[in-house]
Design a protein around this nucleic acid. Structure first.
Lengths: 349, 349
DNA sequence: TTGTAAGCGTTATCAG
DNA sequence: CTGATAACGCTTACAA
């Protein structure tokens, strides 16, 4: 322990020094201000008429005593927690962080807090989180989790908590959906590639149990290949840069070319790096696209051609919709977010 | 709107179809099971002795009615919310996401939820968040925010909420600290660089209002340069890949070399990319280090030499410490986390 | 083993 | 404009 960070226990601020604001209640404030708690409640909520004189007095006492209303008690009394429960598989993906950031922005301006329910990509965990969300008495829930199906969302919603589901279509009076529309775009990308004077093996990187976006993309990929009557390959990889990099360092000992469809930027980068480190050229020998592009698609070199969804916008939209759904005036239950394709350096033409 | 995502309003699950579990309370369960609410409380908390027969009956009723205990009411009654408030400047930095992930992991295994208080790098916001944390009646707070000083943390702590502060030394009986120890390491890196037969301009990238880590690093940088009696430069940049990239594309029209100390990977990458795109070589002409390395330091090419802190570990440690602090048996108020330096391709030797 | 009743800190509906 | 008082849904002595 470095000397300067040493703490002398006697030096600690404790009950005697720096005052201790132990949980002053509205009742104590009322007594100190010589009014009833109803009046105090009125001034802190700016509701009802209070003489400016008593109002001032109460406010002074509040400041003096360091009174902070208990959100918990308020939630119990009003049946509104000002909390939104967010169910996600992990906080560690960049695109999820982006979404979270969008949610935070709007939630803040609307006076909500976000509480996180992370499922760790496990179904059991996901079920447990559903229960937790219900118990938590949140004012609304936003679900972006592939472990959870229509029934789960409906279950939460049926407990009177308005719910927005991202990337899944749920039909329930108390649920709104945000859908990613990328079918046509992805199909087109694959089609164009096939139509070009194309010689490389077409490879889709399958990640086990990785959710709807990838599964759906895989279907589109397969479907498009079949429709064009071309051969394709499905290759299993881990959802990890390091592991996939190793796998491809091996792969490129045998294979010297390919067009690879990867789940996200890190995975795409692992292929690009492995190819380059194996003496292959990108995009001449090896081409790669990422299905979920983030800003990193533009930072790594060569830059990665990618499908893009503005996740920050998705996050914002989700909170907007939730707010409207809660107030009973959500016009469109379903919001479709278009996905774009951006060709960068990791693919030809 | 694509045809398949169209929703026919009549098709929606509503109150009549799929049952609606509107807020069954413990009282209703009690009545339905023919016991008192105390008994129901006992079975859901597995506390006290209950005949296995009545227990079963109660459990059946609970399942039938779809009863879910209200966390809010429980929190009010027990004065424990099972919530941890996390104060961060943004959820959008990779190293913060990593930390969050660590917190989530431990919080989950300890039965806590995380609720986010994001300050958006603004002091006013930060002050507002302090109030919110206090009001929220969380069981503990973790602060990783440079807008907040010792008084702020102490204030939260004085409201009887155990607090862990990351990257700041706070002396208060109810506060624990996690400190990043990188002074010696960083000093050494700069020193070594200077001691080598070094010719390039030494440049520190200053980001306005970017917090303690950077400010501290800047001091160390300046101090080390002065101690060695060498010239140095401070350059103002924005905390944004795109903007800094543009700035450096310009910069490299005039300057053709330099050793740059950047805040984080994205910023470092912007310099590397701008250098490369300007026809300069990394690390021959331009060298770059990142002060907060993440996995991306290893993904971009050339890879980025960086200072590293295991933020996931920091997150886990924070929750551990908070837990112990709350239970009154935190041995060491101050936990020092060592920072390492990893030389990669963006610097010489 | 089970029930009764007080209390947690608010809001909200009444009267006054 | 202000004050009692009953909720809100749960836990927890204390009694039975």
């Amino acid at each position: 322990m470095s000397e300067q960070n040493k703490i002398d226990e006697n030096e600690l601020v404790n009950d005697n020094e720096g005052h201790r604001n132990i949980r002053v209640t509205i009742y104590e404030v009322a007594r100190a201000a010589n009014v009833s708690l109803a009046t105090v409640s009125r001034v802190i909520n700016c509701r009802g008429n209070v003489t400016s004189k008593t109002k001032e007095r109460v406010e002074r006492v509040i400041a003096e005593m360091g009174y902070r209303p208990s959100v918990v008690a308020k939630a119990l009394a009003t049946n509104r927690s000002t909390n939104i429960g967010v169910v996600i598989p992990s906080a560690n993906y960049v695109y999820i962080s982006n979404m979270l950031n969008g949610m935070i922005e709007v939630a803040k301006e609307r006076g909500y807090n976000l509480t996180l329910f992370v499922t760790s990509n496990s179904h059991d965990d996901a079920m447990a989180m559903v229960e937790k969300v219900i118990s938590s008495h949140v004012d609304g829930a936003i679900i972006f989790d592939d472990q959870l199906g229509e029934e789960d969302a409906s279950k939460i919603a049926s407990y009177d908590v308005p719910t927005i589901v991202i990337n899944n279509l749920v039909k329930h009076y108390n649920v709104g959906c945000i859908l990613f529309i990328y079918d046509a775009v992805l199909r087109n990308v694959i089609n164009e590639k096939i139509k070009s004077q194309f010689q490389k093996p077409l490879v889709f990187l399958h990640v086990h149990n990785c959710g709807r976006i990838l599964a759906n993309a895989e279907n589109i990929f397969i479907d498009t290949c079949r429709a064009n009557n071309v051969e394709y390959h499905i290759m299993n990889v881990d959802d990890s840069y390091t592991k996939t990099y190793s796998a491809f360092m091996n792969y490129f000992k045998e294979h010297k070319s390919g067009y690879f469809v990867a789940y996200r930027d890190s995975i795409a980068a692992s292929i690009i790096n492995a190819a380059t480190d194996s003496g292959l050229n990108v995009p001449e020998d090896v081409e790669v696209i990422s299905l979920i592009g983030t800003k990193y698609a533009n930072i790594v070199r060569p830059t990665i051609s990618s499908m893009n969804i503005d996740m920050q916008e998705v996050g914002k939209k989700a909170v907007y919709m939730l707010n409207e759904l809660g107030e009973g005036n959500l016009k469109n239950r379903v919001c479709e977010i278009d996905c774009s394709y951006l060709k960068r350096q990791s693919t030809k033409e």
